[in-house]
Every structure is written in C-alpha cells, then in structure tokens.
Design a protein around this nucleic acid. Structure first.
Lengths: 113, 113
DNA sequence: CTGTATCCTACAAGATACTG
DNA sequence: CAGTATCTTGTAGGATACAG
C-alpha cells in the first residue's frame, strides 16, 4: 500500500509547526498566557522581519493554533493568542521536550563549545 | 530575553522530523518492527527518488532515530531499523496523531472532496 | 502600529543518468 | 542492490522600502 499523501495527521501537525519561528512564537504566547501585541512579538524575536513574522502568524492562524484580534482604534492594535486547541498542544510539546532533553542533550555531553 | 537559537529541544526534534518523507519512513519502520531493506522502502514510497530517500535516511540516522546496517555480501544488502530512541518517539507521535484527528479532521467534515 | 510589496538567496526536493 | 553525481525548480526565509 503506497503512502497516502497527507492523510496522515502526524504529518499535518508536524508541518504546521515546522516554520522557522513557530515554536518560539508558540512558547512566547504560551508563557504570557494572554493576548500579545504584534509589536511585542517583534521585540521578543529581534531577528525576524515583519514579512516573515506576519507569514508565520497567518499560517498558525490558518491552522487554528492561534487567533488574531484587531482593534481598529485611533492607535491600531492587534493581539494574538493561543486558541484552546493551540493551548492543548502543550501536552505533546512537553513530551517532545522531554524526549529531546533525554536523547539530544545527553549526546552533547562530550562536545566542547 | 531574546529567543535562543536552537537551545530549544522542541525545535530540534520538530526539525528532525520535518523532512518530506520522514514520517512515512518512520511509520513504515515502526509498523514492520524489524529491519527493512533499502529497496523495500523504495517500493513502499513509490514517488521518492533514490537521492532523496538516501538523504532522508542519512538525516534520520544522524539524529539517532534510525540505524543503518550494511551487509556487504555477494549481493550487497542494507537494512534500516528504528533505534530504541526512535521507537520511543511513538509515545508523543501517538499524542500528535490524536490531537490531529481531533482538531484537523473534525474541521473537514463540512468540506466536499 | 501593523502590516504589504519587491527583490534576493539558500536550500529542500525532484528528475535523470551513472557506478561499485 | 544501494547508492552517487548533476542539473533543475519551488519555496521558505530574509533585507529593505513603502503604506493605511
């Protein structure tokens, strides 16, 4: 039986987390635990350009991991936050982290910086 | 505090699973539960080229997810299998799958094929 | 402040041919 | 059988300038 192109939920989820800045964005939103402004993300990720930041945010939004709220006030303001689905990813992310610490960091003991 | 470039184990693990064919390869090795020949992988993933297959295998090997054993017999033979670290990924992969089924597939109910 | 619009580069992935 | 070696292409990501 040949491979089924993207019927596999694991592939879909992995690829939705695969952008260069997606995990850092996720971590920041998760840690803050409240809506965060575009400019705050920009400040927190100093080496990201606006184009790329917007792209990564749009993709996370398309994948229902974050949500975007716009307040077109005198001073325009946009806030991003994890959806409840996004927040619930923490369970497997924690397990991934644990796996990584166990199997990656332990291999680097013998390396010099 | 700015982002730490790849001190984050989650980023490392996600990116080690991010290749186009890595999850399909993983799934095949996991399902078979025994060493699998290069040619068997090729047959199972009909649309992959040898160059790409070899690349993906080398990366999975570098990341200690699979191991390669070569038997330079009359008819050369190479077998790939999950390492025990690789096999232990199944725990979070299962959780990812569960998350995906719950949050992705359920959104597609309203789509037509 | 929160974005687009362009342009550019690097690299992942594919097609195809050749090899020990 | 299990790969390299080349060449090509698509796309992610970055630099920079402009805009509502």
């Amino acid at each position: 039986m040949p491979v089924q192109l993207n019927e596999c939920p694991v592939e879909v989820v992995i690829s939705s987390l695969s952008g260069r800045w997606k995990i850092p964005i996720y971590r920041y939103l998760y840690k803050n635990d409240q809506p965060v402004r575009y400019s705050a993300l920009q400040r927190h990720l100093p080496s990201i350009s606006k184009k790329v930041l917007t792209e990564q945010l749009r993709e996370l939004e398309r994948d229902s991991i974050i949500e975007r709220k716009s307040y077109p006030e005198p001073r325009p303001r946009v806030e991003y936050a994890l959806t409840s689905a996004g927040r619930s990813m923490i369970e497997f992310l924690d397990q991934i982290s644990e796996w990584g610490v166990k199997h990656i960091l332990s291999k680097q003991e013998t390396q010099q910086s």
